[in-house]
Computed example of a mutant assay.
Amino acid sequence: MSGAARRDELGSFLRARRRATDPVTAGFRPGPRRRTPGLRREELAQLSGLSVTWYTWIEQGRDIGVSRQVIESLARALRLAPAERAHLLTLAGLALPPVAPPSRTVDPLLRRLVRELHPRPAYVMNPWWDLLAYNEAYAELLGGLGGLGGLDQRPEGERNVLWITFVESRGSGLFVDWPGEARALVGQFRMALGRHPDDPRGPELLDSLRRASDVFGELWEEQTVSGFTSARKELRHLRDGRRLDLDYLKLADARNEQQSLIVFLPAE
């Protein structure tokens, strides 16, 4: 993102979190009926120790310097979760320097590991959920993709977990709690965009998803941010309808931190 786009995103994110914050929980007494939900600008400014004018400029995306102390004060006032706080710092240009755009080349030994994990579904992805390597068990789990050959023949931009989840009907049928899974994916994607501002694949994927999926667009406007957590997933096998309880694990490649190995294990 450019500097202007980052500032706009910072303002949008603050506005969304402000409107989602309960004034009573934040310490304000119930008063006359409010025209809009959440905190007023002056209330958040007060909680953060800022002038109303200065906070308004931040929310409006003005080209002004914002210190770490100011962002930390806003994060505390809004009671942001760790992932949301990290995203706020990233948007303010205060996180770690961006890393180089991720490579799509997968180490041959990692590819072999993915194959050897069969019959456990497994795949390797980059920060944009592009499927860089996968085994037959994962292709079978998706169902209707024609196995490995079906995945291999798809356009590169559509060999992507986000694309399959939001654009194809099989995405909504795979997870029992599809709304929860979809919202979490969007939140993680938003964080990835902040961490890799110089990689054109992120904005390209965002634009494609917004044009192809109304549901994605609606969730994107919620300004949700979330980090990855290993968890138990409830899935439906798309070929025979069986319900599957699988533990979902993500492992980073020590030699390429921008690639991750995802493995589904039978729940115990």
Rank of each mutant, 00 (worst) to 15 (best):
Q153A: 15
L10H: 10
L94M: 06
R104T: 15
T105D: 14
P203R: 10
P179N: 10
L80H: 09
A92S: 08
T90K: 05
W54Y: 15
A83H: 14
L249T: 13
P23E: 04
E218L: 01
E221H: 09
A45D: 02
L109P: 02
E84C: 07
P37H: 07
Y123E: 01
A92N: 06
V263G: 00
L47E: 02
G27T: 12
N135T: 01
G61S: 04
R232Y: 05
L209P: 04
V114E: 00
E158Y: 02
L96K: 11
G27Q: 09
F264R: 00
S172N: 06
L10N: 07
V70S: 07
N135G: 02
R210T: 07
A4H: 13
T56E: 05
V24S: 08
D198R: 12
L47K: 09
A83Q: 13
A139M: 00
R170T: 08
W54S: 11
R201F: 04
L205P: 03
A184C: 08
T36P: 06
A133E: 02
I164F: 06
A92K: 05
A86G: 14
S230Q: 12
R62W: 11
A83E: 15
R76C: 10
P32I: 10
G217V: 00
W54Q: 10
E116K: 01
R6W: 03
W57M: 09
H87Q: 09
R236N: 07
R68E: 15
R17T: 01
E257F: 11
Q258S: 13
S12A: 15
R243Y: 04
V106P: 00
L249M: 08
S172W: 00
S103T: 14
D253N: 11
G149L: 06
P82N: 05
G157R: 14
N126R: 01
A95Y: 05
D152R: 15
F166N: 01
D214Y: 03
H196K: 06
V124I: 13
P98L: 08
R79N: 10
D253L: 13
S260E: 10
G144P: 00
R35M: 05
E218Y: 00
R232D: 15
L110F: 03
T105G: 10
E234D: 09
I64L: 14
I64H: 09
V176L: 12
G3P: 10
L47W: 06
S67K: 02
A254R: 13
L174I: 10
E221Q: 13
I64N: 08
L174W: 04
E181M: 14
A75I: 05
P32F: 09
I262W: 05
P119D: 07
R183D: 06
V106K: 00
R104L: 14
E116P: 00
D253T: 07
V24P: 04
D8Y: 07
F228S: 03
F166Y: 01
T229R: 12
G227Y: 04
L50E: 05
R62I: 07
Q69A: 13
